[in-house]
């Protein structure tokens, strides 16, 4: 127990995607790779596709509301229990000492409560760290699913990795159109067809911000792909879309924290993902900020600015029905308030 408490947290990956998108097929392929060999797997139900892996646990869905009643922070009780049970079995030597857990969600799952379970639950947050969120999108039905189900839109919005399945069943033009739509919703995620080697897919899942060596490339990708905020001319104008906030001069950290906390307090239910790099007054290194809905992760430093990126703040806000111009105005107005405050 003591040694486990001091051990580094285990990485937990969320594998999400709509009904029939091919999550379980992808999971089976991922687990063939040596990169994910020491993974435990939690799935919502044991499906027809057999998973030949060291450990598979079935989780029934049970939603437990916190006393606060905040729906966004609803904790999935069964998921918590399953994760704690897994840790206990690992401690007792009942299962091999896995270093990663892959959680496959049901198709209809809203991702934010799952993220909250992992990152805010008092019992879990020291034992797990959130790895890449992988969302599978079906090239055949993806467009229609995004039109019909807000949960699907949210799954795309929170993703770090978008994997496009069944691309061989549709015309290239359809794949291109869906890809453009996905990039407009979430330009910060990598977008990869599932028809690549298993090991390459596994590498995408393993790579995340927790690896200092991978961090610059990961952050560079977020921002290289971020569209200008006037990207309203894209073929699709999804209800969920990305907004890019920029500022060349250094920002006051206190003002930024107060502003983002205020924004998330009032609009956190429709801000699905925040990712960015900040140039902060008095700090030479860029600061990485990212979060899912209300939940902002502990900021991290980068050793230097990613190649090709001039020093400056670049923040991508992926949100539902948010006025980009108003968001930009708010960002500038609030951050400017700090300028008149004497340096402490």
């Amino acid at each position: 127990m003591v040694s486990d408490a001091a051990a580094p947290p285990l990485t937990a990956n969320l594998l999400t995607g709509f009904l029939g998108s091919g999550k379980t097929t992808l999971l089976r392929r991922l687990l063939r790779s040596p990169r994910l060999a020491d993974s435990a797997v939690l799935i919502n139900e044991l499906g027809e596709v057999g998973l030949d892996h060291l450990l598979v646990e079935a989780v029934d869905e049970e939603v437990v509301l916190l006393r606060s009643g905040c729906l966004c922070c609803t904790i999935r009780g069964e998921l918590k229990e399953a994760l704690l049970r897994l840790l206990e079995r690992r401690r007792r030597g009942g299962v091999p000492p896995f270093s990663r857990v892959v959680i496959e969600t049901t198709g209809l799952a809203e991702p934010a409560p799952l993220v909250a379970t992992l990152t805010a639950d008092p019992m879990l947050r020291w034992q797990f760290r959130l790895g890449a969120i992988v969302t599978v999108v079906d090239a055949v039905n993806g467009d229609d699913t995004l039109n019909r189900f807000v949960e699907a839109m949210h799954q795309v919005a929170v993703a770090d990795r978008l994997v496009l399945s069944k691309t061989d069943l549709v015309e290239p033009a359809q794949v291109a159109a869906l890809s453009a739509r996905l990039r407009a919703i979430n330009p910060t995620a990598t977008l990869t067809p599932s028809a690549i080697a298993d090991d390459a897919l596994a590498e995408l899942v393993v790579m995340d911000l927790h690896d200092p060596d991978a961090r610059p490339a990961e952050v560079g990708h977020w921002l290289a792909a971020a569209p200008p905020d006037d990207a309203g001319h894209t073929p699709h104008r999804p209800e969920v879309r990305a907004h890019l906030l920029t500022m060349d001069e250094p920002v006051d950290w206190a003002a930024f924290g107060l502003w983002l906390a205020m924004l998330l307090n009032r609009h956190g239910d429709r801000i699905l993902r925040v990712k960015g790099l900040l140039r902060v007054v008095g700090i030479d290194q860029p600061i990485v900020v990212q979060g899912v809905q209300h939940l902002i992760h502990e900021p991290q430093h980068l050793a230097s600015w990613p190649p090709g990126l001039a020093p400056g703040t670049r923040l991508v806000v992926i949100a539902r029905s948010l006025d980009g111009a108003l968001l930009d105005r708010s960002f500038r107005t609030f951050l400017r308030l700090a300028a008149a405050v004497p340096a402490g």
Binding site: L66, S68, G69, C70, C72, C73, A116, T119, A120, R125, W126, W253, A254, F256, G257, L258, L260, A261, L264, N265, G268, V280, V281, G282, I283, D284, I287, V289, G291, H294, L295, I296, H297, E298, P299, H301, G344
Partner: peptide, 21 residues
């Protein structure tokens, strides 16, 4: 918003982190 939101440990908030050198 609930007390958990934005909170990553005890009485700390994510914005307590870097500050100014």
């Amino acid at each position: 918003m609930c007390g958990l939101c934005g909170l990553f440990g005890g009485a700390r908030h994510w914005s307590d982190a870097p500050g100014e050198r």
